[in-house]
Design a protein around this nucleic acid. Structure first.
Lengths: 209, 209
DNA sequence: GTACTGACTAAGCGCTTGCTCAGCATGCTG
DNA sequence: CAGCATGCTGAGCAAGCGCTTAGTCAGTAC
Protein backbone atom coordinates (compact mmCIF):
# COMPACT_ATOMS: atom_id res chain seq x y z
CA UNK A 1 0.00 0.00 0.00
CA UNK A 2 1.99 2.99 1.27
CA UNK A 3 5.22 2.62 -0.59
CA UNK A 4 6.81 5.91 0.50
CA UNK A 5 9.05 4.45 3.20
CA UNK A 6 10.36 1.89 0.74
CA UNK A 7 10.97 4.53 -1.89
CA UNK A 8 12.92 6.51 0.72
CA UNK A 9 14.79 3.46 1.90
CA UNK A 10 16.10 2.02 -1.28
CA UNK A 11 17.98 4.30 -3.64
CA UNK A 12 20.36 5.10 -0.81
CA UNK A 13 21.01 1.56 0.26
CA UNK A 14 22.42 -1.18 -1.95
CA UNK A 15 25.90 0.21 -1.89
CA UNK A 16 26.60 3.66 -3.29
CA UNK A 17 26.93 3.20 -7.03
CA UNK A 18 23.33 3.41 -8.17
CA UNK A 19 23.71 2.27 -11.76
CA UNK A 20 20.92 -0.27 -11.66
CA UNK A 21 18.03 0.29 -14.09
CA UNK A 22 14.94 1.85 -12.57
CA UNK A 23 12.97 -1.32 -13.43
CA UNK A 24 15.02 -3.28 -10.87
CA UNK A 25 13.82 -0.92 -8.13
CA UNK A 26 10.23 -1.22 -9.29
CA UNK A 27 10.61 -4.98 -8.87
CA UNK A 28 12.12 -4.56 -5.40
CA UNK A 29 9.28 -2.33 -4.29
CA UNK A 30 6.61 -4.62 -5.73
CA UNK A 31 8.27 -7.61 -4.07
CA UNK A 32 8.40 -5.88 -0.66
CA UNK A 33 4.69 -5.05 -0.84
CA UNK A 34 3.72 -8.59 -1.83
CA UNK A 35 6.06 -10.40 0.55
CA UNK A 36 4.87 -8.20 3.44
CA UNK A 37 1.19 -8.68 2.67
CA UNK A 38 1.00 -12.33 1.66
CA UNK A 39 4.35 -13.81 2.64
CA UNK A 40 7.11 -15.11 0.39
CA UNK A 41 5.58 -18.45 -0.53
CA UNK A 42 2.12 -17.08 -1.25
CA UNK A 43 3.60 -14.44 -3.55
CA UNK A 44 3.97 -15.50 -7.18
CA UNK A 45 6.51 -14.17 -9.65
CA UNK A 46 3.48 -13.05 -11.63
CA UNK A 47 2.32 -10.91 -8.67
CA UNK A 48 5.69 -9.20 -8.46
CA UNK A 49 6.05 -8.67 -12.21
CA UNK A 50 2.52 -7.31 -12.53
CA UNK A 51 3.10 -5.01 -9.56
CA UNK A 52 6.21 -3.67 -11.30
CA UNK A 53 4.31 -3.24 -14.57
CA UNK A 54 6.03 -5.89 -16.66
CA UNK A 55 5.73 -9.50 -17.80
CA UNK A 56 6.86 -12.42 -15.58
CA UNK A 57 9.88 -13.12 -17.78
CA UNK A 58 11.27 -9.60 -17.33
CA UNK A 59 11.89 -10.32 -13.65
CA UNK A 60 14.63 -12.78 -14.59
CA UNK A 61 16.60 -10.17 -16.52
CA UNK A 62 17.16 -8.24 -13.27
CA UNK A 63 17.21 -11.01 -10.66
CA UNK A 64 18.18 -14.66 -11.04
CA UNK A 65 15.29 -15.94 -8.91
CA UNK A 66 12.40 -15.00 -6.65
CA UNK A 67 14.59 -15.88 -3.66
CA UNK A 68 17.30 -13.46 -4.85
CA UNK A 69 14.78 -10.63 -4.58
CA UNK A 70 14.00 -11.66 -1.01
CA UNK A 71 17.71 -11.86 -0.20
CA UNK A 72 18.35 -8.34 -1.52
CA UNK A 73 15.44 -6.96 0.49
CA UNK A 74 16.52 -8.77 3.63
CA UNK A 75 20.16 -7.72 3.37
CA UNK A 76 19.33 -4.07 2.69
CA UNK A 77 16.71 -3.95 5.44
CA UNK A 78 19.00 -5.49 8.03
CA UNK A 79 21.85 -3.22 6.99
CA UNK A 80 19.63 -0.18 7.45
CA UNK A 81 18.47 -1.30 10.90
CA UNK A 82 22.02 -2.06 12.03
CA UNK A 83 23.28 1.30 10.74
CA UNK A 84 20.63 3.08 12.75
CA UNK A 85 21.42 1.12 15.90
CA UNK A 86 25.15 1.74 15.51
CA UNK A 87 24.63 5.46 14.99
CA UNK A 88 22.61 5.70 18.21
CA UNK A 89 24.91 3.47 20.27
CA UNK A 90 28.00 5.43 19.20
CA UNK A 91 26.27 8.80 19.49
CA UNK A 92 26.61 11.59 22.01
CA UNK A 93 25.64 11.60 25.66
CA UNK A 94 25.61 9.04 28.44
CA UNK A 95 24.21 5.51 28.03
CA UNK A 96 20.76 6.75 29.07
CA UNK A 97 20.64 9.32 26.27
CA UNK A 98 22.08 6.88 23.74
CA UNK A 99 19.64 4.13 24.72
CA UNK A 100 16.75 6.56 24.47
CA UNK A 101 17.77 7.51 20.96
CA UNK A 102 18.39 3.88 19.98
CA UNK A 103 14.91 2.80 21.03
CA UNK A 104 13.27 5.89 19.52
CA UNK A 105 14.94 5.35 16.14
CA UNK A 106 14.64 1.56 16.10
CA UNK A 107 10.95 1.72 17.00
CA UNK A 108 10.09 4.53 14.61
CA UNK A 109 11.90 2.73 11.79
CA UNK A 110 9.93 -0.47 12.37
CA UNK A 111 6.70 1.54 12.34
CA UNK A 112 7.57 3.68 9.30
CA UNK A 113 9.12 0.91 7.22
CA UNK A 114 6.75 -1.76 8.51
CA UNK A 115 6.40 -3.49 5.13
CA UNK A 116 10.17 -3.89 4.84
CA UNK A 117 10.24 -4.76 8.52
CA UNK A 118 7.80 -7.60 8.06
CA UNK A 119 9.84 -9.12 5.26
CA UNK A 120 13.06 -8.64 7.20
CA UNK A 121 11.79 -10.20 10.43
CA UNK A 122 9.23 -12.78 9.37
CA UNK A 123 10.48 -14.23 6.07
CA UNK A 124 13.92 -15.31 7.24
CA UNK A 125 13.03 -18.98 6.90
CA UNK A 126 12.57 -18.60 3.14
CA UNK A 127 16.11 -17.28 2.58
CA UNK A 128 18.66 -19.46 0.78
CA UNK A 129 21.24 -20.78 3.21
CA UNK A 130 24.08 -18.39 2.32
CA UNK A 131 21.89 -15.31 2.48
CA UNK A 132 20.47 -16.49 5.77
CA UNK A 133 23.96 -16.78 7.23
CA UNK A 134 24.84 -13.23 6.14
CA UNK A 135 21.65 -11.83 7.57
CA UNK A 136 21.94 -13.79 10.82
CA UNK A 137 25.33 -12.15 11.35
CA UNK A 138 23.75 -8.70 11.00
CA UNK A 139 21.04 -9.65 13.49
CA UNK A 140 23.68 -10.79 15.97
CA UNK A 141 25.47 -7.46 15.54
CA UNK A 142 22.29 -5.58 16.44
CA UNK A 143 21.81 -7.70 19.55
CA UNK A 144 25.44 -7.15 20.53
CA UNK A 145 25.20 -3.36 20.20
CA UNK A 146 22.19 -3.31 22.50
CA UNK A 147 23.80 -5.66 25.01
CA UNK A 148 26.99 -3.58 25.09
CA UNK A 149 25.05 -0.38 25.67
CA UNK A 150 23.13 -1.90 28.57
CA UNK A 151 26.40 -3.15 30.07
CA UNK A 152 27.90 0.32 29.74
CA UNK A 153 24.89 1.79 31.53
CA UNK A 154 25.17 -0.77 34.32
CA UNK A 155 28.88 -0.06 34.70
CA UNK A 156 28.10 3.65 35.14
CA UNK A 157 25.43 2.84 37.72
CA UNK A 158 22.72 4.26 35.44
CA UNK A 159 20.93 1.01 34.69
CA UNK A 160 20.06 -1.86 36.99
CA UNK A 161 18.96 -5.15 35.46
CA UNK A 162 18.85 -8.74 36.70
CA UNK A 163 19.92 -10.33 33.39
CA UNK A 164 21.62 -8.23 30.74
CA UNK A 165 20.91 -10.64 27.90
CA UNK A 166 17.25 -10.95 28.77
CA UNK A 167 16.92 -7.19 28.98
CA UNK A 168 18.61 -6.80 25.58
CA UNK A 169 16.22 -9.37 24.12
CA UNK A 170 13.28 -7.44 25.49
CA UNK A 171 14.53 -4.15 24.01
CA UNK A 172 15.07 -5.49 20.47
CA UNK A 173 11.95 -7.62 20.72
CA UNK A 174 9.74 -4.63 21.49
CA UNK A 175 11.06 -2.79 18.44
CA UNK A 176 10.89 -5.70 16.03
CA UNK A 177 7.33 -6.60 16.98
CA UNK A 178 6.20 -3.09 16.05
CA UNK A 179 6.45 -4.06 12.39
CA UNK A 180 3.92 -6.84 13.03
CA UNK A 181 1.15 -4.79 14.60
CA UNK A 182 1.67 -1.18 13.48
CA UNK A 183 -0.67 0.06 10.76
CA UNK A 184 -1.25 3.46 9.20
CA UNK A 185 -4.44 3.54 11.27
CA UNK A 186 -2.49 3.35 14.53
CA UNK A 187 -3.23 6.21 16.91
CA UNK A 188 0.39 7.34 17.23
CA UNK A 189 2.86 8.46 14.59
CA UNK A 190 6.07 6.42 14.36
CA UNK A 191 7.91 9.24 16.16
CA UNK A 192 5.39 9.49 19.01
CA UNK A 193 5.49 5.74 19.44
CA UNK A 194 9.27 5.88 19.47
CA UNK A 195 9.26 8.45 22.28
CA UNK A 196 6.81 6.44 24.37
CA UNK A 197 8.78 3.24 23.85
CA UNK A 198 11.98 5.09 24.75
CA UNK A 199 10.47 6.02 28.10
CA UNK A 200 9.17 2.51 28.75
CA UNK A 201 12.55 0.95 28.01
CA UNK A 202 14.44 3.33 30.29
CA UNK A 203 12.04 2.50 33.12
CA UNK A 204 12.50 -1.19 32.35
CA UNK A 205 16.26 -0.78 32.67
CA UNK A 206 15.90 0.92 36.03
CA UNK A 207 16.75 4.40 34.72
CA UNK A 208 13.43 6.18 35.35
CA UNK A 209 13.93 9.91 35.56
CA UNK B 1 10.72 -31.13 16.75
CA UNK B 2 9.62 -31.03 20.41
CA UNK B 3 5.98 -31.92 20.28
CA UNK B 4 5.43 -32.31 24.01
CA UNK B 5 3.84 -28.87 24.57
CA UNK B 6 1.42 -29.54 21.74
CA UNK B 7 0.55 -32.95 23.07
CA UNK B 8 -0.18 -31.36 26.43
CA UNK B 9 -2.11 -28.53 24.87
CA UNK B 10 -4.55 -30.31 22.66
CA UNK B 11 -6.58 -33.09 24.20
CA UNK B 12 -7.83 -30.62 26.79
CA UNK B 13 -8.74 -27.92 24.37
CA UNK B 14 -11.17 -28.29 21.48
CA UNK B 15 -14.21 -28.24 23.67
CA UNK B 16 -14.74 -30.94 26.26
CA UNK B 17 -16.25 -33.88 24.38
CA UNK B 18 -13.20 -35.65 23.06
CA UNK B 19 -14.83 -38.08 20.67
CA UNK B 20 -12.57 -37.28 17.73
CA UNK B 21 -10.45 -40.14 16.41
CA UNK B 22 -6.85 -40.12 17.50
CA UNK B 23 -5.77 -39.71 13.87
CA UNK B 24 -7.29 -36.22 13.83
CA UNK B 25 -4.96 -35.20 16.65
CA UNK B 26 -1.98 -36.70 14.88
CA UNK B 27 -2.87 -34.50 11.91
CA UNK B 28 -3.19 -31.43 14.14
CA UNK B 29 0.18 -32.03 15.71
CA UNK B 30 1.88 -32.66 12.38
CA UNK B 31 0.27 -29.51 10.96
CA UNK B 32 1.45 -27.38 13.90
CA UNK B 33 5.02 -28.59 13.46
CA UNK B 34 5.03 -27.93 9.72
CA UNK B 35 3.21 -24.60 9.82
CA UNK B 36 5.54 -23.36 12.58
CA UNK B 37 8.70 -24.45 10.79
CA UNK B 38 7.96 -23.61 7.18
CA UNK B 39 4.83 -21.47 7.25
CA UNK B 40 1.35 -22.31 6.01
CA UNK B 41 1.94 -21.80 2.29
CA UNK B 42 5.24 -23.68 2.18
CA UNK B 43 3.65 -26.66 3.92
CA UNK B 44 2.06 -29.22 1.63
CA UNK B 45 -0.79 -31.54 2.47
CA UNK B 46 1.67 -34.34 1.76
CA UNK B 47 3.99 -32.97 4.50
CA UNK B 48 1.17 -33.01 7.03
CA UNK B 49 -0.15 -36.43 6.04
CA UNK B 50 3.30 -37.98 6.08
CA UNK B 51 4.00 -36.39 9.47
CA UNK B 52 0.83 -37.98 10.79
CA UNK B 53 1.76 -41.34 9.27
CA UNK B 54 -0.91 -41.61 6.60
CA UNK B 55 -1.55 -40.95 2.93
CA UNK B 56 -2.50 -37.48 1.64
CA UNK B 57 -6.07 -38.53 0.97
CA UNK B 58 -6.69 -39.50 4.58
CA UNK B 59 -6.35 -35.89 5.68
CA UNK B 60 -9.64 -35.05 3.96
CA UNK B 61 -11.58 -37.58 6.00
CA UNK B 62 -10.86 -35.58 9.15
CA UNK B 63 -10.63 -32.02 7.84
CA UNK B 64 -12.28 -30.47 4.79
CA UNK B 65 -9.17 -28.53 3.76
CA UNK B 66 -5.65 -27.52 4.70
CA UNK B 67 -7.01 -24.13 5.80
CA UNK B 68 -9.48 -25.83 8.17
CA UNK B 69 -6.53 -27.37 10.00
CA UNK B 70 -4.95 -23.95 10.36
CA UNK B 71 -8.25 -22.50 11.59
CA UNK B 72 -8.62 -25.20 14.25
CA UNK B 73 -5.06 -24.63 15.46
CA UNK B 74 -5.48 -20.88 15.52
CA UNK B 75 -8.81 -20.96 17.36
CA UNK B 76 -7.59 -23.43 19.97
CA UNK B 77 -4.31 -21.58 20.47
CA UNK B 78 -5.98 -18.21 20.88
CA UNK B 79 -8.58 -19.68 23.22
CA UNK B 80 -5.81 -21.12 25.40
CA UNK B 81 -3.95 -17.81 25.55
CA UNK B 82 -7.09 -15.87 26.37
CA UNK B 83 -8.07 -18.34 29.10
CA UNK B 84 -4.68 -17.93 30.71
CA UNK B 85 -4.85 -14.13 30.55
CA UNK B 86 -8.38 -14.11 32.00
CA UNK B 87 -7.38 -16.42 34.85
CA UNK B 88 -4.51 -14.11 35.81
CA UNK B 89 -6.48 -10.87 35.41
CA UNK B 90 -9.34 -12.18 37.55
CA UNK B 91 -7.03 -13.82 40.08
CA UNK B 92 -6.15 -12.92 43.60
CA UNK B 93 -4.18 -9.94 44.88
CA UNK B 94 -3.80 -6.33 43.82
CA UNK B 95 -3.22 -5.24 40.19
CA UNK B 96 0.54 -5.56 40.71
CA UNK B 97 0.29 -9.22 41.73
CA UNK B 98 -2.21 -9.99 38.98
CA UNK B 99 -0.10 -8.28 36.32
CA UNK B 100 2.96 -10.15 37.46
CA UNK B 101 1.16 -13.45 37.11
CA UNK B 102 -0.35 -12.46 33.77
CA UNK B 103 3.05 -11.66 32.26
CA UNK B 104 4.70 -14.70 33.81
CA UNK B 105 2.06 -17.07 32.44
CA UNK B 106 1.67 -15.37 29.07
CA UNK B 107 5.43 -15.31 28.51
CA UNK B 108 6.04 -18.85 29.70
CA UNK B 109 3.21 -20.11 27.48
CA UNK B 110 4.67 -18.44 24.40
CA UNK B 111 8.05 -19.99 25.20
CA UNK B 112 6.75 -23.47 26.03
CA UNK B 113 4.20 -23.68 23.21
CA UNK B 114 6.34 -21.73 20.77
CA UNK B 115 5.39 -23.86 17.76
CA UNK B 116 1.69 -23.27 18.38
CA UNK B 117 2.52 -19.65 19.18
CA UNK B 118 4.20 -19.15 15.85
CA UNK B 119 1.22 -20.48 13.96
CA UNK B 120 -1.19 -18.48 16.10
CA UNK B 121 0.66 -15.18 15.73
CA UNK B 122 2.33 -15.33 12.34
CA UNK B 123 -0.05 -17.25 10.07
CA UNK B 124 -3.14 -15.12 10.62
CA UNK B 125 -3.02 -13.82 7.05
CA UNK B 126 -3.60 -17.33 5.69
CA UNK B 127 -6.87 -17.82 7.60
CA UNK B 128 -10.18 -17.90 5.71
CA UNK B 129 -12.14 -14.70 6.33
CA UNK B 130 -14.66 -16.11 8.83
CA UNK B 131 -12.02 -17.81 10.92
CA UNK B 132 -9.92 -14.68 10.88
CA UNK B 133 -12.82 -12.67 12.24
CA UNK B 134 -13.39 -15.13 15.08
CA UNK B 135 -9.72 -15.13 15.97
CA UNK B 136 -9.41 -11.34 15.73
CA UNK B 137 -12.17 -11.07 18.34
CA UNK B 138 -10.17 -13.29 20.72
CA UNK B 139 -7.06 -11.16 20.14
CA UNK B 140 -9.03 -8.03 20.95
CA UNK B 141 -10.27 -9.65 24.16
CA UNK B 142 -6.70 -10.34 25.25
CA UNK B 143 -5.72 -6.73 24.57
CA UNK B 144 -8.75 -5.52 26.51
CA UNK B 145 -7.96 -7.64 29.56
CA UNK B 146 -4.46 -6.21 29.71
CA UNK B 147 -5.66 -2.64 29.19
CA UNK B 148 -8.28 -3.00 31.93
CA UNK B 149 -5.73 -4.37 34.36
CA UNK B 150 -3.35 -1.46 33.71
CA UNK B 151 -6.21 0.99 34.19
CA UNK B 152 -7.11 -0.68 37.49
CA UNK B 153 -3.52 -0.36 38.62
CA UNK B 154 -3.42 3.32 37.66
CA UNK B 155 -6.69 3.97 39.51
CA UNK B 156 -5.17 2.44 42.65
CA UNK B 157 -2.05 4.58 42.27
CA UNK B 158 0.09 1.46 41.78
CA UNK B 159 1.00 2.04 38.12
CA UNK B 160 1.96 5.22 36.36
CA UNK B 161 1.98 5.27 32.58
CA UNK B 162 1.83 8.02 29.95
CA UNK B 163 -0.42 6.12 27.52
CA UNK B 164 -2.41 3.12 28.72
CA UNK B 165 -2.99 1.69 25.23
CA UNK B 166 0.66 1.95 24.28
CA UNK B 167 1.69 0.30 27.53
CA UNK B 168 -0.82 -2.51 26.94
CA UNK B 169 0.57 -2.98 23.43
CA UNK B 170 4.07 -3.23 24.82
CA UNK B 171 3.04 -5.84 27.38
CA UNK B 172 1.28 -8.15 24.92
CA UNK B 173 3.94 -7.49 22.28
CA UNK B 174 6.75 -8.64 24.55
CA UNK B 175 4.95 -11.91 25.25
CA UNK B 176 3.91 -12.64 21.67
CA UNK B 177 7.39 -12.02 20.29
CA UNK B 178 8.79 -14.68 22.60
CA UNK B 179 7.33 -17.33 20.30
CA UNK B 180 9.41 -15.89 17.45
CA UNK B 181 12.83 -16.00 19.09
CA UNK B 182 12.65 -18.59 21.88
CA UNK B 183 14.28 -21.95 21.15
CA UNK B 184 14.97 -25.00 23.26
CA UNK B 185 18.58 -23.80 23.27
CA UNK B 186 17.67 -20.57 25.03
CA UNK B 187 19.54 -20.01 28.27
CA UNK B 188 16.43 -19.61 30.42
CA UNK B 189 13.55 -22.00 31.01
CA UNK B 190 10.08 -20.67 30.08
CA UNK B 191 9.36 -20.14 33.77
CA UNK B 192 12.59 -18.23 34.45
CA UNK B 193 11.97 -16.06 31.42
CA UNK B 194 8.44 -15.44 32.64
CA UNK B 195 9.69 -14.24 36.02
CA UNK B 196 12.26 -11.91 34.46
CA UNK B 197 9.69 -10.50 32.05
CA UNK B 198 7.26 -10.03 34.92
CA UNK B 199 9.83 -7.86 36.71
CA UNK B 200 10.61 -5.86 33.58
CA UNK B 201 6.94 -5.16 32.88
CA UNK B 202 6.23 -4.00 36.43
CA UNK B 203 9.17 -1.59 36.20
CA UNK B 204 7.86 -0.41 32.83
CA UNK B 205 4.48 0.32 34.39
CA UNK B 206 6.07 2.36 37.16
CA UNK B 207 5.52 -0.26 39.85
CA UNK B 208 9.14 -1.11 40.69
CA UNK B 209 9.41 -2.63 44.14
C1' DG C 1 23.42 1.30 -44.34
C1' DT C 2 25.02 -3.14 -40.88
C1' DA C 3 25.94 -5.09 -36.48
C1' DC C 4 25.11 -5.37 -31.97
C1' DT C 5 22.96 -4.60 -27.21
C1' DG C 6 19.67 -4.34 -23.43
C1' DA C 7 14.92 -4.49 -22.00
C1' DC C 8 11.22 -6.65 -22.86
C1' DT C 9 7.03 -10.17 -24.23
C1' DA C 10 4.12 -14.35 -25.66
C1' DA C 11 4.05 -18.86 -25.18
C1' DG C 12 4.76 -22.63 -22.74
C1' DC C 13 7.62 -26.58 -20.27
C1' DG C 14 8.10 -29.61 -16.46
C1' DC C 15 6.71 -30.07 -12.06
C1' DT C 16 4.07 -29.57 -7.72
C1' DT C 17 0.02 -28.29 -5.58
C1' DG C 18 -4.69 -29.02 -3.11
C1' DC C 19 -7.90 -32.07 -3.54
C1' DT C 20 -10.98 -36.21 -5.46
C1' DC C 21 -12.47 -40.78 -6.26
C1' DA C 22 -12.97 -45.76 -6.78
C1' DG C 23 -11.92 -49.40 -4.12
C1' DC C 24 -10.41 -52.22 0.03
C1' DA C 25 -10.01 -53.97 4.82
C1' DT C 26 -12.01 -53.99 9.27
C1' DG C 27 -15.41 -54.19 12.73
C1' DC C 28 -20.12 -53.51 14.31
C1' DT C 29 -25.21 -54.64 13.97
C1' DG C 30 -29.28 -57.41 12.88
C1' DC D 1 -24.31 -64.75 7.42
C1' DA D 2 -25.46 -60.03 4.88
C1' DG D 3 -25.38 -54.99 5.20
C1' DC D 4 -23.23 -51.07 6.19
C1' DA D 5 -20.30 -47.48 8.25
C1' DT D 6 -15.53 -46.07 9.18
C1' DG D 7 -10.81 -45.21 8.12
C1' DC D 8 -7.85 -45.53 4.88
C1' DT D 9 -4.91 -46.06 0.18
C1' DG D 10 -3.17 -45.66 -4.83
C1' DA D 11 -3.80 -43.30 -8.66
C1' DG D 12 -4.51 -39.23 -10.63
C1' DC D 13 -6.88 -34.64 -12.18
C1' DA D 14 -7.04 -29.61 -13.01
C1' DA D 15 -4.80 -25.61 -11.81
C1' DG D 16 -1.06 -23.01 -10.89
C1' DC D 17 3.83 -22.68 -9.93
C1' DG D 18 8.97 -20.97 -11.02
C1' DC D 19 11.44 -20.41 -14.69
C1' DT D 20 12.99 -20.80 -19.90
C1' DT D 21 12.84 -20.08 -24.61
C1' DA D 22 12.58 -17.77 -29.01
C1' DG D 23 11.84 -13.72 -30.77
C1' DT D 24 10.60 -8.34 -31.03
C1' DC D 25 12.08 -3.73 -30.96
C1' DA D 26 14.18 0.76 -29.85
C1' DG D 27 18.67 2.68 -29.32
C1' DT D 28 23.70 3.08 -30.21
C1' DA D 29 28.27 2.48 -32.81
C1' DC D 30 30.69 2.59 -36.74
Amino acid sequence: MTSTPIAELWPTLPGGADTRPEAAYRLLRAAVESFAERGFHATTTRDIATGAGMSPAALYIHYPSKAALLAEISRAGHAAALALVRAAAAGEGDPVARMRRLVEDFTAWHARARTVGRVVNYELHALPEDDYAAVAALRLDIEREVTALIEAGCADGLFEVAEVRTAARAVTSLGIDVSRWYTERSSETPEELGRHYGELVLLMLGAGR
